[in-house]
Design a protein around this nucleic acid. Structure first.
Length: 888
RNA sequence: GGGCGGUUAGCUCAGUUGGUUAGAGCGUCUGCUUGACGUGCAGAAGGUCAGAGGUUCGAAUCCUCUACCGCCCACCA
């Protein structure tokens, strides 16, 4: 097949992907004697399309998988999608509403709405599948999973009931984060804080002045808390006061002493609202205080709010404040920035309120881990602290530990319909979905219990509950999982994929979901399978626009859609732009220029390969042995190849993929293209079968090294060159020390420097680049190499006459000095003034350097403390510098 | 308030365990287009490594403080 003028990604990408898929390369190889390498793909939400965050993740995962696969490890990358409970349900509801349905939940009912959402996710999933393919992800589609599939539902139910049995899941009334808009609870991690302009009210409150930004909640106060040491209030502690509000109701507040209160803040007296504040709830628990709920789940005041009942919160606040002012109870009103908790999804304020919900107890010592009885928190901490799980970048360990310290029981029940239903059934005369509190019997298990009259809990589980099982649930055998007669341990024991591929090797995901997901996988997996879910966590950074801002659709000029980039530049250019120079944990500023620069590398590779094909056409490929490679240039190229391979392997092992890509790019462009390919254009070198073999060999290795980063292009080049098999299944190159020539390689380096030196002289003398010049070269080392490379020097220096002689003959003209040679450009009309200036500058630099080196060598501290090699190399450089100065 | 990260060339970033003259890409300047190159090549300019102090024979690198930027967590008194 011939090389077209440039790489036409449109025409080949999907075809190449099909070839890979058909070849079976995406499936892990049979036992090769090497350890399996496994990645669980973080399942994209089944809501829509992939964004750049997905693209960077897929790219990093794919390059790891391709690299390990080429190294001969059985490599498995399990793809899948997440049902994304709240996200999906709200998208579908919004769609229905925009089609004119006012209240889809009401109008459709549970069953029908769930069916619609399920249909929607099927569409989304198929879109997402094709986008994952477009990125070139070499995942195993025969093992694709979905968090809502029946087998995974079974696992969810079994894990739930086991945790319930162990007392790690409980149902209790607690203050939860209630989103009045979505009408569901959300977890602590699904809220964020934002300051908003608000009023801070100080109001009379029995014998106290109390500050608040939410006066309406004061209707539900049951205590005033003061610091135990606070002299101002000491006499009140333990007393109870009736506080009648102007228009009712009257509340009864007890004065309690609590360390939690900061006497410096506000008036030092804190009105305690147990029903509508997490902190106050804790105080109330400590002091055994009653709880009055004045705000309902609909976001309106309850009956307990007396005359304000039925009003929206904001409305009630205004009315209450007016009433207090009228009654002279409002001491002062100030402006301040109030931190408000908002829901990640709806971006609307969260209302903390009391609710009977399902929780995971993170502080109960009921987990067996390595023979010890621990809490979930302790296990989460232990596996990272002990190094069983390594986080990259490492500093995320601190963030992770800090999160665990502050972790509270995880609220896992949601009042939405799309998701895994809480696997609990109730029975009793008055029981209905709307009133499970009336239950007389409760059953927790992986399926509906036998018998009549059981009503299932109406709530669904937090979407992260099922994703937390992802690394192992996706490796369980589906048929076994659906066998009701097997328990969870039996399912696990009879799943060959689990046996072979779990724990997984690397979890690759964004640092922004370290808590949401990574921590919870660690929690759930250690508990359920008594093993870690993965041994390394690679956290990629965020993809920002070129100005370092988050991309948003409201700024289309900086927002980049991965699918458009693939369309315009190809998947490879996108992939490279997302990893080149990037490392774990660092954000990436992505602009159009970056993508264009990456595209240029693709073009360069394409053309270099085209040249190699042209020049090696019809030539026999020799086996490379120390005896068959004799030309110093070829020996240099193979030596450089070893250096590169060694370096790249080290970087890849260290997860420094961006750095590895950069190194390959630089070696390919600078050494292979700019020097080697140019140098061998000399006929006698180019014509030798030896060169053709080295050329092909080294290009092949570059293609292999580049393949994990640029899979499509390299595969196409591989095929164009008529190489055997598919590159995706080729062997990863390893250094071959028998093909390494240190001395000759240094000689060729000197040749390369001599070329650069002469070119530099030419430029300084303003010599027409097309003109041929006379050069006199005096090698001081590597004379043989210089002589052998004569035709190369002639070509690259563009000489009329090249004299290579070791004799110290004076040469008039422009001179360059190097430790390995002197090169002189003989000129008819040299610009002597410029020459003198240049030499003076050079001399000055060399002398300065020599002075610094010599002072170091005279320094006793240096001689005594520095390592031998350092001293030796310093001494050598001093020698070289000295001789250079003499030359000048 | 607690914590984490960052500050190196005009821009984006590298800089391994402290060790010769701090690197790359993009951009800029000069020139060329030489057997593959939607361009490419050759050459060049450009940095008191945020600031101050310290440790050391030696600091961009280690320590302390300061300044600025970003992020996470807590905070609805």
């Amino acid at each position: 097949m011939a090389f077209s003028q440039y790489f036409e990604h449109h025409e080949v990408e999907s075809e190449i992907y099909r070839r890979w898929d058909k070849s079976g390369a995406f499936q892990p190889s049979q036992d090769t004697g090497k350890a399996p390498f496994t990645i669980s793909m973080p399942p994209p939400n089944a809501t829509g399309t992939l964004h750049l965050g997905h693209a960077i993740g897929m790219t990093v995962e794919d390059l790891m998988i391709r690299w390990k696969r080429m190294q001969g490890h059985p490599a498995l990358w399990v793809p899948g999608t997440d049902h994304a409970a709240i996200a999906t349900e709200s998208v579908v509801i919004r769609n229905l509403q925009s089609e004119g349905m006012d209240d889809p939940r009401h109008q459709l009912g549970r069953e029908e709405l769930v069916a619609r959402i399920a249909a929607f996710t099927e569409d989304s999933r198929s879109t997402i599948r094709s986008q994952i393919r477009a990125l070139g992800a070499s995942c195993d589609w025969t093992r694709e999973r979905y968090t809502m599939e029946p087998a995974l539902n079974r696992v969810v139910n079994s894990v739930f009931s086991r945790m319930f049995r162990d007392g790690l899941i409980y149902r209790a009334p607690r203050i939860v984060n209630w989103d009045p808009h979505l009408r569901t609870t959300v977890s602590d991690d699904e809220i964020y804080y934002s300051d908003r302009e608000a009023k801070f009210y100080t109001l009379r409150y029995g014998p106290f002045l109390v500050g608040t930004s939410r006066p309406e909640t004061k209707l539900g106060d049951t205590a005033v808390a003061v610091h135990p040491e606070d002299e101002r209030y000491r006499e009140h502690i333990g007393k109870t006061y009736e506080v009648p509000w102007p228009k009712g109701p009257t509340i009864t507040v007890k004065v309690v002493a609590d360390e939690h209160v900061d006497p410096e803040y506000g008036t030092g007296a804190l009105g305690v609202t147990p029903a509508h504040s997490h902190a106050d709830f804790e105080i109330a628990q400590k002091h055994n205080l009653p709880l009055i709920q004045v705000i309902g789940e609909d976001g309106r005041m309850t009956e307990a709010a007396g005359p304000y009942a039925g009003k929206e919160v904001e409305e009630a606040r205004e009315a209450f404040v007016a009433d207090l002012e009228a009654a002279g109870l409002m001491e002062k009103i100030e402006s301040y920035a109030q931190p408000v908790s908002l829901c990640y999804r709806s971006k609307l304020p969260i209302e903390p309120l009391p609710k009977n919900q399902w929780f995971i107890d993170v502080n109960k010592p009921a987990v067996q881990w390595e023979g010890r009885n621990m809490t979930l928190k302790q296990v989460m901490y232990e596996v990272v602290d002990s190094g069983k799980i390594r986080l990259l970048p490492e500093h995320e360990v601190k963030t992770y530990n800090h999160w665990i310290e502050n972790l509270r029981d995880w609220c896992i029940s949601r009042q939405i319909w799309w998701g895994h239903r809480v696997p609990v059934w109730y029975r009793g005369n008055a029981v209905s979905e709307d009133n499970i509190e009336a239950a007389e019997e409760m059953y927790v298990g992986h399926r509906r219990p036998d018998g009549e009259g059981w009503v299932q809990d109406p709530d669904t589980l937090d979407t992260w509950f099922s994703s937390a099982l992802w690394t192992f649930s996706t490796l369980l055998d589906s048929e076994k999982a659906l066998d009701d007669d097997l328990d969870l341990d039996e399912i696990i024991a009879r799943s060959p994929d689990f046996e072979r591929f779990h724990p997984t090797s690397v979890m690759e995901t964004g640092y922004d979901i370290l808590f949401f997901w990574v921590a919870r996988m660690i929690l759930m997996t250690t508990y359920t399978v008594k093993d870690i879910p993965f041994s390394t966590v690679y956290l990629h950074g965020l993809v920002l626009d070129k100005d370092g801002e988050k991309m948003s659709k409201s700024k289309p000029e900086t927002s980049i859609d991965p699918l458009e980039v693939i369309e315009e530049y190809g998947a490879d250019a996108l992939r490279l732009s997302l990893v080149l120079g990037n490392s774990a944990g660092s954000d990436l500023k992505l602009g159009q220029e970056r993508i264009v620069a990456c595209k240029r590398l693709l073009n360069k590779i394409w053309n270099a390969a085209k040249l190699v094909e042209m020049s090696s056409e019809g030539k026999k490929r020799l086996e490379l042995t120390p005896a068959s490679v004799v030309h110093p240039l070829n020996r240099w190229m193979l030596t450089r190849r070893n250096v590169l391979l060694e370096r790249i392997n080290r970087r890849m092992e260290a997860f420094a993929f961006g750095d590895a890509a950069e190194q390959i790019r630089s070696a390919f462009w600078g050494e292979f293209c700019d020097f080697y390919l140019e140098a061998i254009k000399v006929d006698e070198v180019a014509e030798s079968p030896e060169t053709a073999s080295v050329l092909s060999n080294v290009l092949d290795d570059f293609l292999k090294l580049l393949h994990p980063f640029l899979p499509f292009l390299t595969e196409q080049v591989w095929s164009n060159l008529g190489r055997e098999g598919l590159l995706i299944s080729a062997d990863w190159p390893e250094p071959d020390e028998s093909l390494s020539w240190k001395d000759e390689s240094e000689g060729v380096d000197a040749v390369s420097r001599a070329v650069a030196a002469v070119r530099s002289l030419r430029a300084e003398q303003n010599i027409d680049p097309g003109a041929y010049v006379n050069v006199r070269l005096q090698p001081r080392r590597h004379a043989e190499v210089f002589e052998t490379c004569r035709p190369i020097l002639e070509r690259l220096m563009r000489t009329e006459e090249l004299v290579i002689s070791e004799s110290e003959e004076e040469t008039k003209g422009s001179l360059a000095v190097d430790e390995a040679f002197r090169a002189a450009l003989t000129l008819s009309a040299a610009d002597l003034q410029a020459e003198r200036e240049r030499f003076e500058k050079q001399l000055e630099g060399a002398q300065k350097r020599l002075a610094s080196l010599e002072s170091r060598l005279k320094n006793e501290g240096f001689l005594n403390n520095a390592p031998k090699e350092t001293i030796e190399s310093t001494r050598q450089s001093a020698q070289k510098t000295k001789s250079t100065i003499q030359d000048i």
